[in-house]
């Protein structure tokens, strides 16, 4: 393996590892659950892809032919991890709503701000869907 290929492998691996560290730092730092759901996918998509590209390059150059094992992981991790995060966010939303139905007293947590914003958005969308004629007039004018 030439030093140039080794440097490319190391740069890709370092970039991915730095993204993973940054994502975990965001996970620790951000205020509410709905904010924390975002940086977790940073490591899962670009970070994992970058490290696995490094692995693909490394094994392919040292074996002298393309080793498709890393490609399997490159497809699998960025596809599957955001799906889990989305499932989890929906579960958290339904839990927050159920909790507010049972005990409608605000405790001042950061999750409640996001829940209120989401509910206002849903209400605004329902209002807009109820009066399509008005919106068309606005668009025409």
């Amino acid at each position: 393996m030439t030093p140039f290929v080794a440097a490319v492998v190391v740069l890709l691996a370092l970039f991915g590892a730095a993204l993973a560290a940054a994502g975990a730092y965001g996970l620790l730092r951000l205020r509410s659950f709905y904010e924390r759901a975002h940086p977790a996918t940073l490591a899962a998509t670009l970070g994992a892809t970058s490290i696995l590209l490094a692995a693909l390059l490394f094994y392919s150059t040292s074996a002298g032919r393309l080793l498709p094992k890393a490609l399997l992981l490159i497809v699998f991790i960025p596809l599957v991890n955001p799906v889990t995060t989305m499932l989890l966010a929906r579960a958290a939303l339904s839990r927050d709503r159920a909790k507010r139905r049972l005990a409608p007293v605000a405790t001042g947590s950061a999750d409640e701000d996001w829940l209120r914003e989401a509910d206002e958005l849903v209400r605004a969308q329902a209002e807009a869907a109820k009066q399509p004629a008005v919106r068309e007039d606005d668009g025409g004018a």
């Binding site: 991915g16 590892a17 730092y25």
Partner: peptide
């Protein structure tokens, strides 16, 4: 190439370990 790989991948290990701790 061996030295570059050794030290660079060690640094990547360290960054990933920081992520694990967080």
């Amino acid at each position: 190439a061996e030295a570059i790989l050794h030290w660079g991948l060690l640094a990547a290990h360290g960054l990933l370990a920081i992520g694990l701790v967080f």
